[in-house]
C-alpha cells in the first residue's frame, strides 16, 4: 500500500479549512498536511483541531511557496504519492482517488486535475482566464495542457524530487508544467469537477484581477532572467 499524503496550502482560510480536512478524512486519507501561509486568522489551529498536521509559515510567502513546503514535509515523512488541493473547498475530496489511481498503477508520474470548461457552470471570466493562462503556459513550457492553473494534482515521489520550484505565488502551477516538460516526466490529465461556492468564487475573482497580471509578469521575468 502506497503512502498518500494530502498537502493543502492555506491563507486566511479558517472558515473553510475545517470542512476541507474533514472531507479528505472521510475519503480515507489520514495523512494531511496543512501549510498555514502566515495567516492572520486561526487557520492552523482549526486545521489541527480537524485532524491535520499544521505547519506554519511565519510570514506570507504565497501559494507556491506553501505548496512546496508541504511537499517537502510529505517527502520527509515518507510519502510515496503527494496530492495537492486548495483550501477554499473548490475541489471535491471524493476525486482524490481518481487522481491517485494512475500513479499507483505506474501510468504516469504526475496526474493533473483538469476542470472541464462547460459554459454555464463555470463563470465566464474564469473560462477566459483559463484560456489565456493555458496559452501563456504553453509558450512558457512548450506543452499544452487543458487546465494549467488547477491546484488539484497528484505527484509520485519520483516526480516530487524534480519539482525544484522557485515560484512563490500563483505562477507556481505553470512552473510545474514547465518542470514536467523539462524533466520529461509523464503526466495524465484527469477530469475533475469544481465546486463554485459563493466563498470560493469571491476569492477566485480577487485572485484573477489582481494576480493575473502579476503571474504573467513573473513568468516572463523567469523566462528572461
Amino acid at each position: 500500500m502506497k503512502a498518500v499524503y494530502i498537502v493543502i496550502p492555506a491563507y486566511n482560510e479558517e472558515t473553510a479549512i475545517g470542512q476541507v480536512v474533514e472531507d479528505v478524512l472521510k475519503e480515507g486519507f489520514s495523512s494531511i498536511i496543512v501549510v498555514d501561509d502566515g495567516s492572520r486568522d486561526n487557520t492552523a489551529a482549526v486545521a489541527t483541531k480537524s485532524g491535520a498536521l499544521a505547519l506554519r509559515h511565519k510570514i506570507n510567502r504565497g501559494k507556491g511557496a506553501a505548496t512546496r513546503t508541504g511537499i517537502e514535509a510529505a517527502l520527509f515523512l515518507g510519502a510515496d504519492i503527494v496530492v495537492t488541493l486548495d483550501a477554499d473547498g473548490q475541489h471535491n475530496a471524493k476525486e482524490i482517488l481518481d487522481l491517485v489511481q494512475p500513479i499507483i498503477h505506474n501510468e504516469c508520474d504526475v496526474a493533473l486535475g483538469t476542470r472541464q470548461i462547460i459554459t454555464g457552470t463555470m463563470p465566464r471570466y474564469k473560462v477566459a482566464h483559463n484560456k489565456i493562462a493555458n496559452t501563456i503556459t504553453m509558450l512558457y513550457s512548450g506543452i499544452r495542457v487543458q487546465d494549467s492553473q488547477s491546484g488539484f494534482r497528484a505527484y509520485s515521489r519520483h516526480a516530487c524530487n524534480y519539482l525544484d520550484t522557485t515560484s512563490d505565488a500563483y505562477e507556481y502551477e505553470s512552473e510545474i508544467i514547465r518542470l514536467i516538460a523539462a524533466h520529461k516526466l509523464s503526466y495524465k490529465e484527469v477530469s475533475i469537477s469544481t465546486v463554485y461556492t459563493d466563498y470560493s468564487t469571491s476569492k477566485l475573482q480577487k485572485q484573477d484581477i489582481s494576480n493575473g497580471i502579476r503571474t504573467v509578469y513573473k513568468m516572463l521575468w523567469k523566462a528572461l532572467s
Binding site: 505547519l55 509559515h57 517537502e72 520527509f76 512563490d168 532572467s225
Partner: peptide, 28 residues
Amino acid sequence: IFKILSVVERIEQDITRLTRKEALKKLK
C-alpha cells in the same frame, strides 16, 4: 532596473527558503 529586480527576486527566494526551513523545523 534589471539588476535591482534580480537582487529583489534573489532576496525574496532567500526569505522563502528561511521561512520554509523554520516551518519544517517542527518536523525535523
